[in-house]
């Protein structure tokens, strides 16, 4: 049996092999690629990312990744951003006082978490947005986070007939930040589904089911 064809975008960031394996395990045929046309044509595209916002954005621009994401969304082709791969979808990131531009698919600023202990590292709970498909059947599970930055405000609304984005939140100490978004073909998680054991695998299957 062959599953949906998924491309994982290779732009020099992070533990790509784990992402590839986890998406394969969830039932897809996965290609790791830096080729924009392959990334554009796949049924689903995963944009991973670890490290710094500015460095990731630079890497993404280096392979034309932001144009790939843009074109896919215009054609309603699913994209899943993970961790910094989610953060760069927002308008901008601020690191050490320096502002960097993101892809700007969503308004919002990625800022340093203000908690006694940062990075936010480990397994935390989620409060899925209404109408979430991403968390169907796994609403009560914990997912693995490792990040020092996040998005505190969600301001984007849709007009009918388009559905509202489903925004999922997570609390960490005094912070409450966006831990996942489902917005039409564009989905993203601040945590790492590929490192979240069976719960992560179920989430990836929920995504593959939309392809």
């Amino acid at each position: 049996m062959s599953g949906p064809r998924v491309a994982v975008l290779d732009y020099g960031s992070g533990n790509l092999r784990s992402v590839v394996r986890a998406v394969e395990r969830a039932g897809a045929e996965v290609t790791l690629t830096a080729d924009p046309s392959v990334a554009e044509e796949a049924t689903g595209l995963v944009v991973p990312g670890v490290g710094a916002f500015a460095a990731c954005m630079e890497g993404l621009l280096g392979v034309g990744g932001e144009r790939v994401v843009e074109r896919r969304l215009i054609a309603s082709r699913p994209v899943l951003g993970i961790c910094v791969g989610m953060q760069v979808l927002f308008a901008e990131g601020i690191e050490h006082g320096v502002r960097s531009q993101g892809c700007g698919e969503w308004p919002g600023i990625v800022e340093r978490l203000q908690a006694p202990i940062v990075p936010h590292m480990g397994w935390n709970t989620v409060e899925p947005g209404e109408s979430s498909r991403m968390f169907a059947g796994i609403e009560d599970q914990r997912f693995y986070f490792v990040h020092s930055y996040g998005v505190r405000d969600w301001v984007m609304r849709s007009e009918p007939p388009f559905p509202q984005p489903a925004v999922t939140w997570t609390e960490y100490g005094p912070e409450r930040f966006v831990s996942a978004v489902e917005h039409g073909p564009l989905w993203a998680t601040q945590f790492h589904p590929e490192k979240s054991g069976d719960a992560g695998a179920a989430l990836l299957r929920n995504w593959l089911d939309t392809l």
């Binding site: 092999r17 394996r21 490192k195 695998a201």
Partner: peptide, 11 residues
């Protein structure tokens, strides 16, 4: 490390 990462999906 690589064989473990192929099979075990935790950090």
């Amino acid at each position: 490390v690589s064989r473990t990462a192929e099979q075990v999906f935790i950090p």
